[in-house]
């Protein structure tokens, strides 16, 4: 069983999946209250499972608004530390693309979530679910027309991790194969295509707004 968390959008989502089954799931839609609602959501979901059955914790590493995103990743890290199980990340947009592909097999899709400041985080996928462009952050009107606006969920993040593990992906060593700032880090083709697991660290895509003093 995999416990999945995603907080990369206005939705705080927690789920436990076992194969194709969602064993327990909870969510709360509010762009500013991730840190408040995550506690009761986790308590509810964990209360409905035998925690000894959880083999790993999956978390969406964004991109997404930073404050909420960090809440989910910090929670995932804490669960992993407390239970002694690995914490595995995937790009949150990949989880949405996988959900879309499950419903519309073979259709290429562009996934976008709100990045505030009139911008979106987005990525483009081919009909087999491989990422062919992104993740990027940019003006909403620059994004291709077939945008999907659904929220990444804990269940889809957990399924994405489950699928990658089943395909032989190994837990990340700690290096970020996909540059956290969205710049070329010499990432492998697999990382660029979303075919690898990621360490539980946010995909920020923007550097902090700060001006060095002279």
């Amino acid at each position: 069983m995999i416990l999945g968390i995603d907080t990369s959008s206005a939705l705080t989502s927690v789920a436990v999946v076992d194969g194709d089954l969602v064993v327990a799931e909870g969510g709360h839609l509010d762009p500013r209250r991730h840190a408040e609602v995550i506690g009761p959501l986790l308590a509810d979901v964990v209360g409905r499972i035998d925690r000894g059955d959880v083999t790993s914790v999956a978390c969406g590493v964004g991109p997404g608004p930073y404050t909420g995103l960090r809440v989910g990743i910090a929670s995932a890290l804490a669960l992993g530390a407390a239970w002694g199980v690995p914490v595995l990340g995937v790009c949150s947009l990949d989880a949405v693309a996988a959900a879309e592909l499950a419903e519309h097999p073979g259709s290429p899709v562009t996934v976008a979530v709100d990045a505030r400041r009139s911008e979106v985080y987005w990525a483009r996928y081919d009909g087999s679910g491989l990422r062919v462009e992104g993740p990027r952050v940019g003006p909403a009107d620059g994004v291709p027309a077939d945008v999907v606006g659904r929220h990444p969920t804990g269940a889809w993040v957990a399924w994405r991790v489950q699928a990658l593990l089943a395909a032989g992906a190994v837990p990340p060593s700690g290096e970020v194969p996909l540059d956290a700032h969205g710049e070329d880090s010499g990432a492998t083709a697999n990382a660029l295509a979303g075919a690898t697991l990621l360490p539980p660290r946010p995909l920020y895509l923007r550097r902090p707004d700060a001006v060095a003093s002279s």
Partner: peptide, 13 residues
């Protein structure tokens, strides 16, 4: 919030 999220998850876990 980073500490608070960690604390809540540890409490539940």
């Amino acid at each position: 919030l980073v500490g608070v999220a960690t604390a809540k998850a540890l409490s539940v876990a």
